[in-house]
């Protein structure tokens, strides 16, 4: 079953910054772009599982810190010649709070 989960306030994520949400099935990376849009992706690069949350955020893209693959924060698609996709996670902002949609068994941090 999918549920909405509250994770932090919008202002807890710096512009062009990121936060990590720990779940039972790995980490989710939350990003806030310079244009103040918020996105959530699996925190694992499609290439070698690098932590995308540690990458540089530019436009609505993030560059993986390990080998420089670039992903769209919107679609999770790898850019340029690289082929791959990172799972995106639904996000919404309610009264200045960031909420993401997770399956219950994913959300449990044990």
């Amino acid at each position: 079953m999918q549920n909405w989960y509250e994770v932090c306030a919008v202002d807890d994520i710096a512009l062009r910054g990121s936060r990590i949400v720990k779940t039972a099935k790995g980490c989710v990376a939350l990003f806030r772009t310079a244009q103040n849009d918020i996105y959530a992706l699996n925190d694992k690069c499609a290439h070698k599982q690098g932590p995308l949350s540690q990458g540089i955020v530019h436009g609505n893209l993030v560059t993986c810190p390990l080998h420089g693959w670039v992903f769209s924060l919107e679609t999770g698609e790898a850019q340029g010649a690289d082929k791959g996709r990172v799972k995106t996670i639904p996000v919404r902002i309610v009264e200045g709070c960031v909420q993401i949609q997770l399956a219950d068994q994913t959300a449990l941090t044990g």
Binding site: M1, Q2, N3, W4, Y5, E6, V7, C8, D12, A14, G17, R19, I20, V21, K22, T23, C27, L30, Q99, I100, Q101, L102, D104, A107, T109
Partner: peptide
């Protein structure tokens, strides 16, 4: 310190999708 923020823990809301 924001570059070293601790990981967040999701808090469930009373709203089923």
């Amino acid at each position: 310190a924001h570059h070293f923020d601790a990981p967040l823990v999701p808090k469930k809301l009373e709203e089923t999708v």
